[in-house]
Design a protein around this nucleic acid. Structure first.
Lengths: 246, 246
DNA sequence: GAGTGGTCTAGACCACACT
DNA sequence: GTGTGGTCTAGACCACTCC
């Protein structure tokens, strides 16, 4: 029995674990597209020979991991990550009246160049590989809020090297998906504090040497491989981040 | 049936939810002490009239919430929060050789005074209520690392007003428990960036006006009520914090 | 009404910890 | 060996979504 699981992971693991690994690999390999519905639990149970409760448990693992979301009466779906406002979690970027404002994105510069060694390493590419670099300013209510430096693998994102800068729009990740078929699944970020250099300060509209919060982000695709590295700078006096500890 | 649940929450909720609320209230009211073992699942099932699987699910909720921990073959235990190094998650506080060092705590000043309005509000106490304030320096390898200003309700923590300053030791939360029977269950923190005033700078050994990371923490007891408010300052150039996004 | 996930039950056997 | 939590099954009924 469990014929469909034979290609999967360590058989000493609990069935629900083997099952969740199987489902995870199907998602990562694009067998089920992000946003699409996976087969109903009953069907998965039948296909794999496991009991329904065991399938539910396997799905639960992936829901906890953020790969799937369930909707009662509708089905279970491959989750599409929503980074639309993620960086702005860290910053108080509301208007004078306290209302939330939609941030804009403006590409300041684009160039093809060899990836810096540190970036290449984080992207798991060989040092000196060709990269695409974007300098980008994010504005809230016409005021500069964040400055970003973004590095991508030139080959995979070739379409962005041609695209008119005005057509980049306010959000990059949906663009990656539309233009390059690259979907971001998750990311890690590292926050530090530094001081603004002359150029950074001028672009952000703050005093040179003023404190800035630096956010380094590495974004991964559904295949688990790093896809984009970016470093963002924002005025430190606008920074606020809350955490729950247990 | 479910006689033992009759005093519990909204009966329209799923049984496992009502059960987890019941268990939660028992923990919060100190019915089961932190660190102690709760009755086995089979016993809880029998007492409440629910099936074993339902009890397991209820316990799962509290495990996810961090209130309980399970240990196969031993039992399920009320979790004791471990904050021993929590603030140092945010700071690179290793020695020159990269080794982790045990932070020390030193009380610089202690005084009884009315709680500042903002602090009283966060502690859910009436404005002007008597408070106990501690100024504390945390050192790593004899170097100043963090400066802390701590506010407590004077009545509940009366024992600390008498204690010789040398007897406070390096960790406060275990002291709260020993001396005052107050156990910290969880906390929320808010991170911001500011600049060091003259006194802060001198105590931390940094330049006046240098950037500092400010961490405001509100710590809660098992009864869910706020217990301690503290504000900590650390040199911003030592700050680093990493996050996982999905 | 058909199909989906959500809750609940009753019982079996396994893995681990203590003694 | 005894008691604990961990896994798994088979089947029932409920709640929600969509046609």
């Amino acid at each position: 029995m469990h014929a469909s699981l034979s290609v999967a992971s360590d058989p000493r693991l609990p069935i629900y674990r083997q099952l969740s690994d199987l489902l995870r690999s199907r998602i990562e390999q694009g067998h089920w597209a992000p946003g699409s519905r996976i087969p109903p639990e009953s069907e998965l149970a039948e296909q794999t020979g496991a009991a329904l409760g065991t399938v539910r448990r396997a799905i639960e693992v992936l829901v906890d991991d953020g790969l799937l979301t369930r909707q009662q009466g509708r089905g279970t779906f491959v989750r599409k990550a929503d980074f639309s406002n993620s960086l702005f979690r860290f910053f108080r970027m509301t208007g004078e009246d306290g209302a939330l404002l939609m941030p804009q994105g403006r590409i300041l510069a684009r160039r093809l160049a060899p990836l810096p060694a540190a970036v290449a390493e984080r992207l798991s590419l060989r040092p000196g590989a060709e990269g695409l670099c974007l300098d980008r300013l994010r504005l809230v209510g016409d005021k500069p809020a964040l400055l970003e430096c973004i590095w991508l693998e030139a080959g995979r994102f070739a379409a962005l090297a041609e695209l008119p800068l005005e057509d980049f729009g306010d959000l990059l990740y949906p663009l990656y998906e539309r233009a390059c078929g690259a979907v971001v699944a998750r990311a890690t970020e590292l926050l530090t504090v530094g001081s603004a250099g002359a150029v950074t300060a001028e672009r952000l509209g703050i005093a040179p040497g003023a404190a800035v919060v630096v956010v380094d982000r590495l974004a991964y695709g559904y295949d688990g491989r790093p896809m984009e590295w970016r470093r963002s700078w924002g005025a430190a006096d606008k920074f606020a981040y809350s955490i729950e500890i247990r």
